[in-house]
Design a protein around this nucleic acid. Structure first.
Length: 551
RNA sequence: GGCUCCAUGGUCAAGCGGUCAAGACACCGCCCUUUCACGGCGGUAACCCGGGUUCGAUUCCCGGUGGAGUCACCA
């Protein structure tokens, strides 16, 4: 077989030599230990927490080492393109604090190793494919979908491994004439790898290969024997081939990807070897799991829309909280570090791939919420106010007028009980925050809770009218509370909870019950920060009004 | 089904041949307290099973079992 002729027959339009690309995309001029990582999303526009989790690893590895983190769009599947998806991905990641040094961006490609859209790199891939054909490392395959299905059926019948390999690879050894005639008939073809591996032997002879994984250590896997598709009929490469060519030419040093790629690692290893390129360091991350029917399951794009990044954005989780959570599940020593350095910026933590867990991590909303509380309590009210406004503008437009123009009011509310050495940790995410402070806004104020059981309706009225009567907006907190004690006493409630505990028979309840009545009249619920402070913000008129309403 | 990965409390997760087997979340109790939080103290709760190796295995090896992933002209 004259491979030279074959290569020309198949790719007459390709005139460049691989060496030219090597020159255009030289080794990067960076310090020896600088890591080059990339995120390669397919533009379905959907990106979930699991993607962010992986992206974080990329970002940390690159930026901690003075390397490069770039964005490459893996749009080799034309059936799955979604309009505006790239923008959505970029803005999502940006929101959560992930920035790229290079690659696809809102303003177009950035950097010297582009184009960064795989769909625009057809000529590059074909150049390498042509070279492989020329060397006898690849060949055209004209099998139709039906033929492939037949092969599979027969393999299933014979209980052999499915796939296109060895003796099943029907077009592996077509003659040049045969190929020529099929081309003349305009038959479409794919280009396949002529795999050097063979499983067509006794089990113990199957060659195993070892790969050092950054997270998992030494991986021992059987070598590849599949004649996988390199180039699809439309001239666009499959993921496997695009990955190898791109990560080589873009000089990626660390390939971070989910564990679902582990089974195809042998393919990639063979490709790198065939092309005689050094292997990048693979880091196969554990999958983020979800509990379903008592079993853990990998997060899925289709099945778990509630785990899309947009879900967290719309619920109003603060990006810093999400990052903090991700970091704690990403590196087992992060939490410990955080306890020792509660105020250090996240970026000063030294992230290491070796500290990553390699079993699936269950996504834990409780934990996220808890972490979120700790994160939010440290954010100044002023900043929280801006955060709430930005959130409302995107996801809750009816609240915008409530906030904008009344920032001072909002800031006061958000700052309630947060000073001192035991600040309240009431806030978790925007939706919840607004719910929590909603009683400050008449349109959203509602009375939900009932008076305590030990307080009769008559007593409640008596307490409230006495409260209204003695109310002086200028009282300081102590004066105000002394009045409450008086009201408690005159109505048969203990002025101090301890008195009540000592002699429960002497009282109907204690001062706490009295304040609860007032609290419910004012806020509509039995849980809230300090009543006096709330009244100061609410103002005298509104305070009195609300008491009046229930009398 | 083949292949691969994984296996410590409900969840996340330290551990790397000898520990009373950390810690965090959740849960429960107590304290603080005018409510709810916050905070403090305490509590319930774990090494999948069976063989080895060893003076000694959660830790190393083998075999089960269980879970997950993957077997496309999708990534």
């Amino acid at each position: 077989m004259d491979y030279n002729k074959l290569a020309e027959l198949l790719f007459p339009h390709i005139t460049k030599e691989p060496a030219e690309y090597e020159k255009i995309y030289p080794k990067r001029n960076l310090p020896a230990n600088a890591k080059i990582t990339r995120l390669g999303p397919s533009p379905t526009g959907f990106i979930h927490l699991g993607n962010l989790y992986g992206a974080f690893v990329d970002e940390r590895l690159a930026h901690q080492s003075g390397g490069i983190f770039y964005l490459r769009i893996e749009d080799t599947d034309d059936k799955r393109q979604v309009e505006g998806a790239v923008e959505a991905i970029i803005s999502s990641l940006e929101f959560f604090g992930l920035t790229f040094d290079e690659g696809a961006s809102m303003e177009g490609d950035k950097g010297d190793y582009g184009p960064y859209y795989q769909s625009q790199r057809a000529e590059i891939y074909q150049t390498y494919v042509k070279q492989m054909i020329h060397r006898g490392q690849a060949y055209p395959c004209f099998c139709t979908e039906e033929e492939l299905a037949e092969i599979r059926e027969e393999q299933e019948h014979l209980k052999e491994n499915p796939g296109y390999y060895g003796k099943w690879a029907k077009h592996r050894n077509l003659s040049l004439e045969e190929i020529k005639s099929r081309i003349d008939q305009d038959q479409s073809f794919v280009v396949r790898l002529r795999s050097q591996g063979t499983h067509d032997c006794a089990e113990e002879e199957i060659k195993m290969i070892s790969v050092e994984d950054g997270i998992r250590g030494t991986l021992t896997i059987p070598e590849n024997d599949q004649d996988i598709v390199l180039l699809k009929a439309n001239g666009i490469p499959t993921y496997h081939f695009a990955h190898v060519v791109d990560d080589h030419l873009m000089r990626t040093t660390h390939v971070v990807r989910g564990a679902e790629w582990l089974p195809s690692l042998p393919i990639h290893v063979e490709l790198f070897q065939t092309l005689d390129w050094p292997l990048p360091i693979y880091c196969h991350t554990a999958q983020l799991m979800k509990m379903e029917d008592g079993n853990k399951r990998k997060l899925s794009k289709r099945k778990d829309p509630e785990l899309s990044l947009d879900y967290y954005r719309s619920e109003g989780y603060h990006p810093k909280a999400v990052r903090e959570y991700l970091l704690t599940i990403l590196n087992s020593n992060y939490e410990e570090w955080r306890m020792e350095s509660p105020d250090a910026p996240q970026s000063s933590f030294e992230f290491t791939v070796g500290k990553m867990s390699n079993s699936g991590t269950l996504f834990d909303l409780d934990k996220l919420n808890d972490i979120s509380k700790d994160v939010l309590v440290k954010i100044p009210a002023q900043e929280l106010c801006q955060f709430l406004i930005a959130w409302a503008k995107s996801y809750k437009t009816e609240l915008v007028d409530l906030f904008v123009g009344h920032e001072t009011y909002l800031v006061k509310i958000l700052d309630l009980g947060r000073s001192g050495n035991k600040p309240r940790k009431d806030f978790v995410f925007a939706t919840q925050m607004f719910e929590f402070i909603s009683y400050f806004y008449d349109d959203y104020f509602k009375r939900e809770d009932a008076y305590p059981e030990n307080v009769s309706t008559e007593d409640a009225k008596a307490i409230l009218s006495a409260y209204l009567e003695s109310y002086d907006h200028n009282d300081d907190q102590t004066q105000w509370f002394n009045k409450i004690r008086e009201i408690a006493t005159t109505n048969g409630y203990a002025a101090k909870p301890k008195d009540y505990k000592k002699n429960p028979g002497l009282y109907k309840g204690h001062v706490g019950d009295v304040s609860t009545v007032i609290r419910i009249a004012l806020m509509g619920r039995s849980m809230s920060p300090d009543i006096w402070e709330i009244q100061q913000i609410l103002g005298e008129r509104k305070t009195k009004e609300r008491i009046h309403e229930v009398l």
